[in-house]
Structures are given as C-alpha cells and as structure tokens.
Design a protein around this nucleic acid. Structure first.
Lengths: 340, 340
DNA sequence: CTGAAAGCGCTAACAT
DNA sequence: ATGTTAGCGCTTTCAG
C-alpha cells in the first residue's frame, strides 16, 4: 500500500520518467509518443490508482491549483453564501479554495497574504480591508491574478466586482422619502471602505435633494453583537423623534431589529426600517423588512469567471475590468407609511 | 527581489545548508552550533526577510500545517459559525484551515478526502455524510488525526464531539406536551445520520410516554428552499388538526416559518413552533421561536483542542474520546399555550 | 561542531 | 520517439 511514484511506474513498465510524465500531462501526441506505450502506461496508472503528488508538482511548477478567498467574516451570511458559490465553481474547474476571515484587520490580512504567497496560491479573491493597498499592489506587480470584490481600493487597478452602492442607498432613501418619512436616520459601521462611503453618500444625496436633515450614527466595526446593540439602543433613545431608520449592513440591521424588539418600538408605525443586504432574517421578520438585496449569485459568478479567465489565458495584456452590478430593493411592510 | 533560498544564505555566510537548517528549526543548541554562527545567521535571515518555502518543507517532511474542515454546507449559519471559531483557533496555533462543503454527498466527500490526502493535510475535522465509513477508517488506519463532529458513524472509533440530540428533542417535546399541546408534528430531513436519528427518537420517546400519536414528515435533503417549503406546505395543509410542529434543523425551521407566514397560520395560537438549532431568525421572529441552541463555541473549542492535542503529542496511544455536550432549550413565545 | 550529499516526486531542457 | 539529468527548496543521515 506504499505510495507509488512516477519513478515506480517508469521502472515497472521499462519506460522513462519523462515518457510517463508527458503522458500524464496529455502531451503524448505533441511529443509523438507511441500509442502502444501510451495505452500501456494509462492502463497501469488506472490499475494501481496512481495520482501525481500535487506538492511535488507545485514545488516544481510554482502552480498550486489553489485560490485564496479572503472575506471579512466567513460567518456573515452574505460572505458565506458567496463563498459557497465560488467554492462550487472553483472545484468544478479543478481549483481548490482556501478561505479566511480578515476581520477587516490589516495586520491579520497582511500575514494571511504573505502566507498565501509562500504557498504559491494561483489567484486571489479578496474583499480588502483598508490599508492593504501595498500588499495588493505587490501581488499585482508579481503578476498574480487578483480579483477584488464588495469594495475597491484607491489607486489599485485590478479586476473588480462590485455593486452600485451609492445608487442602492440613494434609491432606498428616496423610497422612504416618497413614503412620507422625514426624519430618517442612517446607522452603520464607521468605516472608510469604499462601499461604506458610497452607501453613506447615497443616503446623504437623497436627503439633500429633499432638504432633509441627516441623522447619522456610526459604530466601530465589531463582530460582537453587544457592542453593536448598545450604541444603537443609546442612539435611538436619544433621538425619539425619528420616523425611519436605515441600517447600512445586514449585521447592523439584525442587531438593530433586536434593539427595536427589545425596547418595544413598533415597526413601521413608530419607526420605519430599511436595511442593506437582504436575507432570511429580514424576510421572516414581522413585519418583513425592506432590504437591498445584493445579487449574490451574480457576484460569485462574475468573480470566479473573471479569475478563471485570468488563470487560463495567462494573458496579462487584457486590461482589468470593473463589473458593477445592480441591486434589488425588496420593498416590504417595514417601510410602509401607515396612513392615519 | 528574487526569492531567497536556504542555499543562498549558506553561500552568502560561508556556512553549510545544514547549519542554516538546524538554526532555522531551533536545533542549534542540540547540535552545538557556535553561538556566534547562530547569531550571524539569524541576523541575516532577519535582514533579508527570509521565510522557508513551506511547499518544499511539506514535500520533505510530509507535514503541511493544514487542517481540512469538512462540513455539510458552509453557508449554513451553524456550520459557518463553527468554522469561524475553529479557523481562529487554528491560525493561532500555526495551522491553516481548508474548508469545504460536502452537501452530504458521499461521492463528493470521497473525492475531497482523497484530494486532501494527496496534499498531505495534517488532520481532519469532519461532519461526515452517510456511507463514508470506509474512507474515514482508512484515514484512521493511516494514523491521521480525525475528529468527527455533529454526528458519528457506526463502527468508527475516533475522537468525536457531539451534542445530546436524543435528550434535546425529548426535552423540547416534553416542553410542548407540558404546555398542553397534543398533536405535535415533527418535520425534518429524511436522513440516517446519527444526529437525525437520535433527534427523531427523542421526539418519539416523549410522545410515547404520553401515548400521543406522532405526525412525521420527512423531506429529502436539499439546499434549495423551494424543495423544502413545498412539501412542508403540502403536509400542513393536509394535517389541519395539528396544534404544534417541531422542526428538526435550522434550515427546515426557517423554511417552515416561511410557509407558516405564507399560508397565514398564527403562531402559537393556530400552531405552536419549536426548532432545532437556535439562531437570529428564531430570536427575531414574531413571535420569537423556541429553539434548541447548540453550544457552538464549546463545540468548536472541543473539536480544535482535541485535534491539536493529537497533532502535538503524536501519541497514538491515547484512546479516542467522545465528548457529548448539552444543549439549551431557549423557550420563547412560539411554544406557549394560549389559555382560552 | 560543521559539511557533503541523498533524497521527497515531479517537470522539462537537452540529449540520443 | 524516448531517455538522462538537473533542479524546485528543504531536511537529515552520515562523515569528518
């Protein structure tokens, strides 16, 4: 049951390692290896269930057939779903995925990237935290395929898949305004990431058009629910006059709903609610929550397609492309003005 | 900017590769290498930022510092949360995680395992699908550390972290009975996995004690919501006389809630609801849904602790251990009998 | 105490 | 058309 190597095969079949290697890599014809030999080798390989050692292959070729997928938090349903879809497509194309959560932590992300480089991963899919520009540039300079998604970085030109954040929040805020809400708060993580800034801008833009006053609450980024609910609760208690609230991410939105339930605020009669990132919690909530749905499948699809393209063509001459996808505003009862 | 190797260092410093290697691996003392040499080498390594090539290390040593984590579906919040926690602990201990979703598909799982073996992963954490006994046995026979969790396999003795499924559903069903519900349905994925069987058994046991009739609906395992909601809807429409329903997993529970909302069944007045696997959706639902909360952190903690133990001690003499954790029944409004 | 050298399993340039 | 051989970068045995 010893592991069998290419040398064993060569010896057994009285051919050379090269011949076997060529046959293995489908270059038999190209190298004009005798059909009879090819068949003999293939049969033998089949019989003993030989599989090349990918480690040795990687060491030799510098390729690993591994794609690194770096997201903010793999337990966030948005990223988990995308990861799932990307994983499937990647496996089907002979690539494996290594994921990890960056926690939006620059240092951790830096470590992770350098680890991936050492392991010779073939490509990167990254939802980049702030301050990681240098490492990404260096990756690109080294001709590594890099696809950014969910957000972009200043002065980094590489393949990118994003949604139209500004329009999404603009549109949702307009919806609230059209429903007749006037004091609309926006609660979000404080962040300088591109998507967060764009979302905030969309909110501001819509308010400005109607000359409404913004009510903004920014919360330090955190995974811990308690550190999110507490500031939200404090903010809502301080601003009793609000008639609508817009949550900037699914996590903030979920925590926000907990707070509302907790302090007994009725939706939408006391306070209308809209959130970014649609998912089960919003759909099932009573009343169901109006939410901006990102096209998760399209994002995953585009990301992996672009990356596989780069990987296969190895044509570094294709200029990098930015794909901006549209979102859907799923209007539900939480944002309906109750006529009185 | 060329990648520097151990040979470069040796040449540059006029020492041998061996010496450098020993110093790198902290075996300088053991090998009585001159303190002056050690310092010179370490300083140089520091300066040029040398990092050993892990691929070459793996090829040579057969170790990869990679742990494979195989779950049913990484986008399921239960598994995503566990993955997240395991990932953190693993990174802190110098291990990387490769996850993948098995989809409960035996063939896919088999492929995945053989791929991991080729890549020389150091250990496995698996929520095993049915029919994978042979591969797991083979792994164990090859002295690979394997920790199973969430469910176990017949005749496989290896480290295991599970919850007390039978008692959990028994207890929750008892709760419904004590509330005064009599026609209690159990809706679940049809499956012969150990945890699913135990859950079903707990339900039956509680009913039998009270001599109540069971109402069982089993749905083929599937990720697609529509293929879950449809059978649930059909079942509920056919059995109008039920007064409570118990969902066997978070996914079934979530889909079940959608159906209830859809066809306008009031919870708990028309139908009480309990589900396995607590999470946001249940907490935030109106009314909040009574659910069995698995101790996610404890599961992750135990899994990784047990595995790291195996990895470090390399003592195959420690007999394998089964850890059975308790769950919490979070009683909420969805299972309260409305006095009339 | 240090160094030479043999591999781990594979690929590919270079013979033949 | 097929074989020889030199590495990829590292660890480790064995000699000095």
């Amino acid at each position: 049951m010893k592991k069998i190597s290419i040398a064993d095969i060569a010896r057994e079949l009285h051919v050379s390692k090269t011949t076997v290697s060529f046959i293995l890599n489908g270059r038999a014809e190209e190298k004009r290896i005798g059909r009879e030999v090819v068949e003999r080798v293939q049969k033998f390989i089949e019989e003993v269930g030989y599989r090349p050692n990918p480690l040795a292959q990687s060491l030799r070729t510098g390729k690993s057939n591994i794609i690194a997928l770096m997201v903010e938090d793999i337990s966030n349903p948005f990223f988990a779903s995308i990861a799932r879809l990307i994983e499937d497509r990647a496996y089907k194309n002979g690539y494996k995925i290594i994921y990890c959560s960056t926690d939006n932590d620059t240092v951790k992300t830096r470590d992770l990237i350098s680890m991936f480089r050492e392991r010779h991963v073939d490509g990167y899919i990254i939802a980049p935290p702030e301050g990681i520009e240098e490492e990404i540039s260096s990756l690109i300079k080294a001709k590594m395929p890099v696809v950014l998604f969910d957000r972009h970085l200043q002065n980094i030109s590489t393949d990118l898949v994003e949604i139209d954040n500004l329009f999404s929040t603009y549109n949702a805020t307009r919806h609230l305004i059209q429903q007749g809400f006037k004091k609309i708060a926006y609660i979000t993580f404080s962040s300088n990431q591109s998507q967060m800034l764009a979302r905030l801008e969309g909110y501001h833009k819509a308010l400005e058009e109607s000359a409404y006053k913004p009510f903004l609450k920014e919360i330090p980024f955190n995974q811990n629910d308690d550190l999110i609910t507490a500031p939200i609760a404090a903010f809502l208690k301080k601003n009793k006059n609000l008639d609508a609230v817009f949550f900037g991410t699914n996590h903030v939105g979920t925590c926000g709903l907990m707070v509302l339930t907790d302090i007994g605020i009725k939706v939408p009669s006391d306070l209308a609610v809209v959130s970014f990132d649609d998912y089960n919690v919003f759909k099932l909530h009573s009343p169901p929550v109006t939410a901006i749905a990102q096209p998760i499948e399209a994002i995953a699809d585009n990301v992996i397609t672009v990356l596989l393209n780069r990987l296969n063509t190895s044509s570094q001459h294709i200029s990098s492309q930015s794909i901006i996808l549209k979102t859907d505003l799923n209007i539900r009862a939480s944002s309906k003005m109750i006529k009185s």
